[in-house]
Amino acid sequence: MTSVIDVFDVSKNYGSQHVLENISLNVKRNEIYGLLGPSGAGKTTLVKMIAGIETPTNGRIKVLDTDMPNLHNMTRIGFMAQSDALYVELSGKENLEFFASIYGLKGQKQKERIEHAASLVNLTDYLKRPVHQYSGGMKRRLSLAAALLHEPEILILDEPTVGIDPVLRQSIWNELYKLSDAGTTILVTTHVMDEAEKCGQLGMLRDGRLIASGSPQQLKESTASATIEDAFLYYGGVRNEN
């Protein structure tokens, strides 16, 4: 399996504030990689740098063997931000049309992709409504649909399931598995420990450092923990003792 996201020794400072320190990780093709950590750990900053929105202070990031940020690569990445970046005056369909056009999708192809993405997130019946009438969960789903429109090779999702009900969360995860089987690499951040178990690979992030990485199974076994939460506490504790 080839590596599609490579992060080499990346640090990020905002002024004197160190947000991320010496992060190295890589994500292989088809993998679902979960970044687990409490809020404020630096998850969002890390995925933004991988998506090419931010640039690292030190170190480098390669996506699909190209240094980021790179405009061409951005057409191969789907990004769903933590906040729902939607135009609330417009209808769901108009939002999707806008994002689709930006990725160069037009005509029949655009229509098909919008229908497909909307049906994936169960929004087909609500597309004509203005987004300001949407519930929080519907907005999250519309954001996800917008990230899927251009069939990206890499999908970066920042806290995709916040505020979504368990049934729908399950169906979104099923969809992510399907995309992964079809060849999409998925990088997802979460602060929900049980959700982390659904990922193929995990990186545990705390106070700007990657404290552990591996498959959920490995992480639990090597720390003799019953749950991911225990494993996280174990690694977090080790770091505190140092």
Binding site: A51, G52, M74, I77, A81, Q82, D84
Partner: peptide, 13 residues
């Protein structure tokens, strides 16, 4: 509203 950031994650110059 975060849409600028969202746009910057697209290939829009």
């Amino acid at each position: 509203t975060g849409t600028l950031e969202r746009l910057l994650a697209t290939p829009m110059r």
